[in-house]
Design a protein around this nucleic acid. Structure first.
Lengths: 341, 341
DNA sequence: TCGTTAAACTAAATCGTTTTAGTAGATTTA
DNA sequence: TAAATCTACTAAAACGATTTAGTTTAACGA
């Protein structure tokens, strides 16, 4: 026996006032709208006593606002994204917004479906890690005046809000750090993803080795194989075929995880001989043996910037401000794996 | 210039038909409602051409369904929950449901707020890891006929759907495994949380050591300190004060992470001497040195069961089926850290 | 004393759907 | 030929809020 939730109507008839009056009082406009203290109190007391909660769906329909923000990443179960999700969620929560998380697998079709789906649900804004082929979908959203902020990567030819880190610079510093510690044959293991974040990291590495007149040694793993045995196989042959490499720079944390597994299987001693450095820190790297040096993205700062831009757009009447392009700096955390040994 | 999204009304007037007709056609009821093929085609062609999407908020208001399920866990950035979230999300996605993730920090106040908030938003169902004190809130939801499934833990005195693992049995097996491998002074490090999952794990450990006529050595870390330096300090003194312990059983994965860090800091060699086993597997444990033995919860199975129960309730007219109580078995994954050394 | 203003409300439109209960006209039945 | 049945639609209520544009009564000013 599902008893119906009370609506304004029910309260109004119960208390012999109009729906309007109830609505005004519940929205704190009682004074402003000259409702008498007596009536205000009557309504407040009663709604509290029955623990009345307005129907937010109806509210959304009427106001056009849902107070929901979508946070779309590659894979919400990945450490980096999950941590960031928590930060975003907390900020949103304080501002009375809810966050819908979803994973697009860096796949265009899925990204597109998710965007449409949430657009239909009238979400108020999108924070998105875009997959490579959805430039136009993002553009459409912006044209429809929906608040959008990209992060981690962006489309150079599209004017949008975005928050990224200085990938090239960070990769450069990490490579330089290896060189400074005496490593000479540095391998760079990355994915075949052709998006800004990866291209910039590659560029940072290549510029640095070339400047130091060292050779460039790059392995590109197809994105779809990144966590599979196939991917691990590729890393394995790359390393075993080139016994001369004295160090490895992984371009992203899920590659590092596979990489460590492969190295450990192949030759555990190598873990202590090879110089290792990775993009994206992880709690694991701090307690691994050896501890793994990492380029750490400023999660808190990224989250705060993203939400600041988003909340700002949500406040504006016409979001006609020029897009914000934020580039933050990552920090190189030096641990044992990149020490000269 | 935000141009308004088209509504049924606009389509209807554009094509000189009624709103009703458009609605019928878009819902695939054209044939059933005897709309002529000609009109059906006209409407379909037009709505496709302008890529019309109905307003789901309005739809929800009318139908009372939002097609949204809430998935509430302690901390969405925790490996175990994040993995499960992905599984749930995928299943839901295929059934045309969306999932809202949120973290309650195992805190009653926050849990309560989240439940209310989503209830107001008319979500169709809740999948919840309950914090200790929200028994009555859960009960209220159920009384209001809202589909609810608990997991990981439950309230023994409340008839609800739940999916858990056999914690006592799993802890028992893990302890036995250590004993079988020659460990005699086994420490159990857990939290002070007094909920079924933790109590059962403790019970499993205690029964096993007592049966083997070994001593029981338990450290309870206050939940709020679990990931802080204070928690690490407690672990540190527990271990250093008791040099006689030859093995440690961690009751949950975030404790293990802190524990490994402490042990490594204190005396790296200990990592290879101490027997170590943990509840909740993690990719990290497979590649750690030593590899860490773990009680692995059947994530896929848990996710499937949860969604099966949930989807079933969502289908029913009156959810008057008796609650499902599912207890799954966890798997002990033996790795190097629990080998006799 | 009459017009004006303020106080304290309320009726009804609106948001964009779904769905029930029609209707008008053509065709069939008896 | 009148009643019944179909076909192909449509009007309008309903979901539960917000908000505009009133209305009524009392008080005030000149």
């Amino acid at each position: 026996m599902k008893q119906k939730r009370p609506a304004l109507k029910d309260i109004a008839s119960k208390l012999n006032v109009s729906i309007t009056t109830v609505s005004f009082v519940l929205n704190g406009k009682g004074k402003e709208k000259k409702i008498s203290d007596e009536v205000i109190k009557k309504i407040q007391d009663y709604t509290e006593s029955i623990n009345f909660k307005p129907n937010l769906v109806a509210q959304s329909l009427r106001t056009g606002k849902t107070k929901i923000i979508v946070f779309m990443v590659e894979d919400i179960s990945n450490y980096f994204f999950a941590k960031l999700a928590r930060i975003i969620e907390d900020i949103a929560y304080n501002k009375d917004y809810k966050v819908l998380f979803c994973s697009n697998e860096n796949d265009d079709k899925r990204s597109r479906e998710l965007i449409n789906l949430f657009y239909e649900r009238q979400v108020d804004g999108f924070i998105i890690i875009p997959s490579a082929g959805i430039r136009n979908d993002i553009d459409d959203l912006i044209k429809k005046n929906v608040p959008v902020v990209l992060f981690d990567r962006y489309f150079p030819d599209l004017k949008t809000n975005y928050v990224v880190i200085n990938n090239k610079d960070a990769a450069n510093k990490a490579t330089r750090h290896l060189i400074d510690n005496g490593f000479k044959k540095i391998a760079f293991i990355t994915t075949d993803v052709k998006q800004t974040q990866m291209l910039d990291r590659l560029k940072g590495y290549e510029e640095c080795v070339s400047q130091a007149q060292l050779s460039s040694n790059v392995l590109e793993i197809p994105f779809k194989d990144v966590n599979s045995d196939k991917g691990k196989g590729l890393i394995h042959s790359f390393i075993t075929d080139h016994a001369e490499y004295d160090s490895v720079f992984f371009s992203t944390n899920y590659l590092t995880q596979s990489g460590l597994e492969v190295i450990k299987d192949y030759n555990p001693n190598l873990l202590n001989e090879l110089g290792i450095i990775t993009f994206d820190d992880n709690d694991l790297f701090r307690i691994y043996t050896p501890t793994i040096s990492a380029v750490s993205q400023p999660l808190q700062e990224i989250g705060e910037k993203l939400m600041k831009i988003m909340l700002n757009m949500l406040k504006e009447k016409d979001g006609s401000d020029s897009p914000q392009e934020v580039v933050l700096n990552a920090e190189l955390i030096q641990r044992d794996s990149s020490k000269d040994r």
